[in-house]
Simulated scan of single mutants.
Amino acid sequence: MENESPYPRCQVDASWVTNSPFSGGGFVLELAPGTVTYGSIGMDQTMSPMHAEFTIFLYAMKNSLQLGVTSMSFESDCLQLNEFTHLLSLFTVFSISFIARERNVRADFLAKGARSKNSIFSHVDSVIPGWLVHKANIFILN
């Protein structure tokens, strides 16, 4: 027998296919047994299935809050979202905050440099990657 989730719960899913101008998303919000709200959205095609899944996840969260529900168990069959929640649970303190682009110059520079390499690779080190050393002055913060 499948393990039933506690209430309230919200199941989310996205539909994404290659070469389509649209993606879709849906959610089923169960506040209690027999009390169900259904939601769906059609949206412009997203960059990936993960983006579509995250978009419907945010949509479901907003709708839950509009209904005054601030305690929720979200469920998804998207493995990347499940990996995110698992990793999130391993932190003793976790926060996400917005910073202005001009305060995010180093990470932005690394991202653009990685994209311009046109290859699949990974680099994690306390040293600036050799292919970016010629522009290392960007890493000096004022």
Results as ranks from 00 to 15, higher is better:
residue 2 E to A: 15
residue 7 Y to S: 05
residue 10 C to R: 00
residue 10 C to F: 02
residue 11 Q to P: 02
residue 11 Q to L: 11
residue 12 V to L: 08
residue 12 V to F: 01
residue 16 W to L: 06
residue 17 V to A: 15
residue 17 V to N: 11
residue 22 F to K: 10
residue 22 F to R: 07
residue 24 G to H: 00
residue 26 G to R: 02
residue 26 G to F: 01
residue 29 L to G: 00
residue 29 L to Y: 07
residue 31 L to C: 07
residue 32 A to N: 04
residue 32 A to E: 09
residue 33 P to N: 03
residue 34 G to K: 06
residue 35 T to P: 03
residue 38 Y to C: 10
residue 38 Y to H: 14
residue 38 Y to K: 12
residue 39 G to F: 04
residue 40 S to H: 10
residue 40 S to L: 06
residue 44 D to W: 06
residue 47 M to T: 09
residue 47 M to Q: 07
residue 50 M to W: 04
residue 52 A to G: 02
residue 54 F to G: 00
residue 56 I to N: 00
residue 56 I to T: 00
residue 57 F to E: 00
residue 57 F to K: 02
residue 62 K to F: 02
residue 67 L to T: 03
residue 70 T to D: 06
residue 71 S to A: 15
residue 72 M to D: 02
residue 74 F to H: 02
residue 75 E to Y: 07
residue 76 S to V: 06
residue 76 S to Q: 03
residue 78 C to N: 03
residue 79 L to Q: 12
residue 82 N to R: 13
residue 83 E to H: 13
residue 84 F to A: 15
residue 85 T to K: 10
residue 86 H to T: 15
residue 87 L to C: 06
residue 87 L to P: 05
residue 91 F to D: 08
residue 91 F to G: 09
residue 91 F to C: 14
residue 94 F to W: 15
residue 94 F to M: 13
residue 96 I to C: 04
residue 97 S to C: 02
residue 97 S to K: 07
residue 98 F to K: 04
residue 99 I to P: 00
residue 100 A to G: 06
residue 104 N to W: 01
residue 106 R to K: 15
residue 106 R to V: 15
residue 107 A to H: 10
residue 108 D to N: 14
residue 108 D to Q: 05
residue 111 A to W: 02
residue 111 A to G: 03
residue 111 A to F: 00
residue 114 A to K: 04
residue 114 A to C: 01
residue 114 A to G: 07
residue 115 R to I: 11
residue 116 S to T: 05
residue 121 F to R: 09
residue 122 S to E: 14
residue 122 S to R: 15
residue 123 H to Q: 09
residue 123 H to L: 07
residue 123 H to Y: 14
residue 125 D to N: 13
residue 125 D to R: 11
residue 126 S to C: 12
residue 127 V to T: 10
residue 128 I to T: 04
residue 129 P to S: 06
residue 129 P to T: 05
residue 130 G to K: 12
residue 132 L to S: 08
residue 134 H to S: 15
residue 135 K to V: 06
residue 135 K to G: 06
residue 136 A to Q: 12
residue 137 N to V: 14
residue 137 N to H: 11
residue 137 N to F: 12
residue 141 L to V: 03
residue 141 L to H: 05
residue 142 N to R: 08
